[in-house]
């Protein structure tokens, strides 16, 4: 018998620190499957900032750089500009990318930096124990919105793909999810496309991945999956928000120019 499914080579064979049912692990795997299939592990440099995935340098077998909270896009810019022939990706959470790192996020996109950003949106700060994130849904209870997030007090969630698709430098922005097998396959395809964009020098690519956080949502893993499907996907519709290659542009008057 032949093995038809196993751990990708570029995913180091160690147990992870992620909580049971946390879908970070799925995104790690499909990212590494893409790296294996493109045969680029030796030419890839990953940047992981503070967040649950800060220790991903123990899981990804390519060269890794640990970055300050919110600053991965800047670190990645420094890497890519001086090593243009290498593949560079960041793997960031929602607090990192859409709160403290918003300026870095907007500018890495508007510069059209030729890197890939894997953005894990689980509507919460996981590592620090479940506080409100910029993507926390209205009404969602967290450590810092104990009565449910009220937009009047704590503002509205940030829709990152929609926001970044407005920027000319963004070549590709797609929101995917890892709640089901078909969605996981689509997410992998999106990640592959992002890396192919980088290879072809198309500019900035971001894949926003709706992901679960069973522990801090206070839900069993399968119930967390259900919450993602019932509450997150409606608020954060999946799909391609920009793809310069396929002519997908945001609904603004002037299109891209």
């Amino acid at each position: 018998m032949a093995v038809v499914f196993e751990r990708p080579k570029s995913l180091i064979d160690v147990p992870t620190h992620y909580c049971p049912g946390c879908t970070h692990g799925i995104v790690h795997r499909i990212l590494c499957e893409v790296i294996d299939e493109m045969g680029i592990e030796g030419d890839t440099i990953g940047v992981c900032p503070v967040g649950c995935s800060v220790m991903a340098y123990d899981y990804f077998n390519c060269d890794m750089i640990e970055a300050a909270h919110g600053r991965a896009p800047a670190v990645a810019t420094g890497v890519k500009r001086t090593n243009p022939d290498k593949f560079v990706f960041t793997y960031q959470g929602d607090g990192d990318l859409a709160a403290i790192g918003t300026a870095e996020t907007v500018h890495v996109a508007t510069r059209g930096e030729n890197i890939v950003v894997i953005f894990i949106n689980n509507t919460i700060y996981g590592m620090t124990g479940g506080q409100m994130a910029p993507t926390t849904l209205p009404g969602q209870v967290t450590q810092t919105t104990p009565f449910g997030r009220s937009p009047e007090l704590a503002g509205y969630p940030v829709k990152v793909c929609e926001m970044l698709s407005q920027l000319t430098g963004t070549a590709y922005a797609e929101r995917v999810a890892v709640d089901s097998v078909p969605h996981i396959k689509a997410a992998k395809k999106a990640i592959r496309k992002a890396f192919e964009n980088q290879k072809a020098g198309k500019g900035f690519s971001i894949v926003e991945v709706l992901s679960t956080c069973p522990t801090n949502w206070g839900l069993a893993p399968l119930d967390a999956i259900k919450r993602l499907q019932d509450e997150m996907i409606p608020y954060y519709p999946l799909g391609v928000y920009k793809d310069v290659e396929e002519g997908v542009f945001p609904k603004t008057e002037g299109g891209n120019e």
Partner: peptide
């Protein structure tokens, strides 16, 4: 030219890492 001094020093960190 970076978007802030914070971004600039982190770009330095990235380049220096390589």
């Amino acid at each position: 030219q970076a978007e802030s001094e914070i971004a600039a020093i982190n770009m330095v960190l990235g380049a220096a890492s390589t």
